[in-house]
Amino acid sequence: MTRRSVIAGTGSALPARRVSNAELAETVDTSDEWIVERTGIRFRHIAGPEETTGTLATDAAKAALASAGIAAADIDLIVLATATPDQTFPATATRVQAALGINDCVAFDVAAVCSGFLYALQVADSMIANGAANRALVIGAETFSRILDWEDRATCVLFGDGAGAIVLEAREGEAGILAAKLHADGRHNELLYVDGGPSTTGTVGKLRMRGREVFRHAVTNLSDVMRESLALAGLGPEDVDWVVPHQANARILDATARKLSLPAERVIVTVDQHANTSAASVPLALDVAVRDGRIRRGDLLVLEAMGGGFTWGAAIVRY
């Protein structure tokens, strides 16, 4: 039998503060109608002073462990995807490790922005496949509110904070991660980036984006990489039960589904409630759909995302 990485449990966490478009419009030159028409976003969660990427990641990890029925001590790998770590170093994954009471396991961060969870997933899957790990926490967690320019209405309305996590477990059988494909093209740095960093400005910086160009690349890249991943698994769009996409913009979700001739009702959408939570958005949406009963054991899932860099990727999972 083939040794595969099976999703044994899912979890998520959101900051306590939930901000509507109307509340945002009190301090930003925007409106509920403007935001909904262009993005589909209605709410986002914003981290408070005591909430960090690490605390959200820890809460999501605890929920995933409870869902899987697995003790924290049984985890031997933590891969945390984030563009907004608690500190420049050490890795936020080690803070999660300590908070969970795990005395020793491999723990590190992956930085691929909105595609980070897909990158982290393939890293963990590879380590499980080669026997380097048996049970892994794969987490996407962000506090993008810390790097937004709140005077730039074209970007600040798009993002929110949150975390999502899964427990991967080595099992033999037909379920698990069947195929994945990742890409990167660094020529597009100026379309989506943060204008700061330790080795350049010595500051955290703020997010900058040219939305129209990003939209065009996203629709093409995401539809192509989903086709690539399905082909690697020997499957086609007609085999897909659910697409769990990066929650960037409702129009991107619609356009990508149309390119693959997938009905909209087979796409998990949470962007209206959470906005774009970057690396957290795919596992967060997955957890929502698992817990509300839409995604069931045996379903074929396509997870996909694209982020700054550009980076993008997709994974085919038999849940």
Rank of each mutant, 00 (worst) to 15 (best):
V138G: 09
A285M: 11
E238P: 00
R258N: 12
K181C: 13
S115G: 09
A285Q: 06
N189A: 14
V290K: 10
T30D: 07
A98I: 01
A184I: 03
I35R: 04
A314E: 06
V157G: 07
V19S: 02
T2R: 15
A22H: 14
A99Q: 08
A91C: 13
P90T: 05
L232R: 13
P245T: 01
L207Y: 08
V138P: 10
L192Q: 05
R135G: 00
I102D: 06
S5L: 09
F215G: 01
S223T: 00
G307V: 12
L253F: 10
L65S: 03
S223N: 00
E23Y: 02
L121M: 13
D195G: 14
A68I: 04
G140R: 02
L14D: 04
S126N: 13
A163R: 12
A141I: 09
A136T: 05
A175I: 00
V157R: 06
L235M: 15
I177S: 00
I70P: 06
A264W: 03
V79T: 10
A16I: 11
R251S: 02
D125W: 05
A275S: 14
N249T: 04
G186C: 08
N103T: 13
E33I: 08
L56I: 06
T10N: 00
G197M: 11
I177W: 03
Q87K: 13
G54A: 15
I102W: 08
T200E: 04
A129D: 05
V243H: 04
S5H: 07
M209G: 08
C114D: 05
A250S: 13
L300C: 12
G298E: 03
L286I: 00
G9N: 05
I166R: 05
N276V: 13
M127V: 00
P237V: 05
S278V: 15
A107G: 10
I78N: 06
S261W: 04
I7S: 01
N221Q: 10
D287W: 12
A136R: 02
T220H: 11
H246R: 12
T200F: 04
P283I: 02
